[in-house]
């Protein structure tokens, strides 16, 4: 379900955080869907269970996940809307930064980049 890279400069808990957020935002993880238990995830990826716990706890504090007694964590059924937008923007931020950087390196102007983005958006809608 998740792709974790322990050798990355990004701490494992953060990788997990971002992936869960993205999957919930995209709908891949529907409300009420069960996540793997801490033990399962830790064993599968051979990582410290505390790392997984930390990520799950932070997600619970954000309101994204719910803890159920005796059962694994599930996606929260009511995801608070107010925090949703900023969170989603945060998700896409790295990609946008990369695109902007690439555009600057290729010496494209801001207008040209926006035009490309708009074209892509419209193509997708079709």
């Amino acid at each position: 379900m998740f792709i974790l890279n322990p050798q990355s400069g990004i701490p494992i808990y953060r990788q997990l955080l971002e992936q869960v957020r993205r999957m919930v935002a995209s709908g891949q993880l529907a409300p009420g869907a069960e996540l793997p238990s801490v033990r399962e995830l830790a064993l599968k990826h051979a990582v410290n269970p505390m790392t997984v716990s930390k990520a799950y706890s932070l997600l619970e504090a954000e309101g994204l996940l719910e803890r159920n007694r005796g059962r694994p964590m599930t996606v929260a059924s009511r995801v608070r809307n107010t925090s949703q937008l900023s969170r989603r923007i945060e998700q896409i931020q790295p990609l946008v930064e990369q695109t902007v950087l690439a555009a600057k390196q290729l010496e494209l102007s801001e207008t040209e980049l926006v035009k490309t983005v708009r074209k892509n958006w419209e193509d997708e809608d079709e």
Binding site: R39, A42, L43, A46, V47, N48, P49, M50
Partner: peptide, 13 residues
């Protein structure tokens, strides 16, 4: 090594 790590994970559960 992987088997050993898994055992450590279990131990630290």
């Amino acid at each position: 090594r992987r088997q050993f790590l898994e055992q450590l994970v279990e131990a630290s559960m």
